[in-house]
C-alpha cells in the first residue's frame, strides 16, 4: 500500500511541467456557444472584453498528467473533477503559460478498496508571469489491492 504522506513529501508543490498556449478565438466561441453562454464577452469575438470561459480554461492540459517519476498506483486515473479560479481575463491570441505541480494527494477508503485523489494544479500566467488563473484537475485512482 502506497504511503500517502511519503508521496506528499516527495512530490507536492514541485513544478513538473510547463507548456505554452495561445487560445484560438474560434475555439473560444464554439466552447462558449455550445455551453449555452449568453454573455457578449464570451460569444462575440468583436466585443472589447472578449475572453475565454472558465470551462475553456479547465481544458488546458500540460504535456504530462503526473511527474515522470511518480509511482504507478495500479489503477487507471479517472477524471474526478475540475476547478478553476479566475483572476484576470484570458484573451484569444494572448501568449500564456501553464505551470503544473501536484497541489494535494489524499485517500478515501471505500467498500471496494482505497481511492487515491491527486490534485494537479496548473497556474496560468502571462508573459510577465502575472497569475491569470488557477486550474485544478482531480485525478482519482482506485488502488490495486496487493497480490
Amino acid at each position: 500500500m502506497v504511503d500517502i504522506e511519503e508521496l506528499k513529501k516527495q512530490f507536492l508543490n514541485a513544478e513538473f511541467d510547463s507548456k505554452n498556449f495561445v487560445l484560438d478565438a474560434e475555439n473560444l466561441l464554439v466552447v462558449a456557444k455550445t455551453s449555452g453562454e449568453t454573455r457578449a464577452q464570451f460569444i462575440d469575438a468583436e466585443h472589447a472584453d472578449f475572453q475565454a470561459t472558465p470551462a475553456f480554461l479547465c481544458s488546458l492540459a500540460s504535456g504530462r498528467h503526473l511527474p515522470i517519476d511518480f509511482p504507478a498506483l495500479g489503477g487507471i486515473p479517472m477524471d474526478g473533477g475540475k476547478a478553476v479560479e479566475c483572476f484576470a481575463p484570458i484573451r484569444a491570441g494572448q501568449p500564456i503559460t501553464g505551470k503544473s505541480h501536484l497541489h494535494d494527494i489524499y485517500d478515501k477508503q471505500g467498500r471496494s478498496g482505497r481511492m487515491i485523489f491527486i490534485v494537479v494544479r496548473m497556474e496560468i500566467v502571462d508573459t510577465e508571469d502575472t497569475l491569470l488563473a488557477i486550474s485544478d484537475s482531480r485525478l482519482v485512482i482506485r488502488e490495486k489491492p496487493a497480490a
Binding site: T34, S35, E37, R39, F42, T53, A55, G81, K82, V84
Partner: peptide, 18 residues
C-alpha cells in the same frame, strides 16, 4: 465532457446574473 458540464453551470449563472 465533464468540463462541458461546468460550462453549462457557468452559463446558468450568467443567465440569472448577467
Amino acid at each position: 465532457p465533464g468540463i462541458m458540464g461546468m460550462g453549462f453551470l457557468v452559463s446558468a449563472i450568467h443567465r440569472w446574473a448577467p
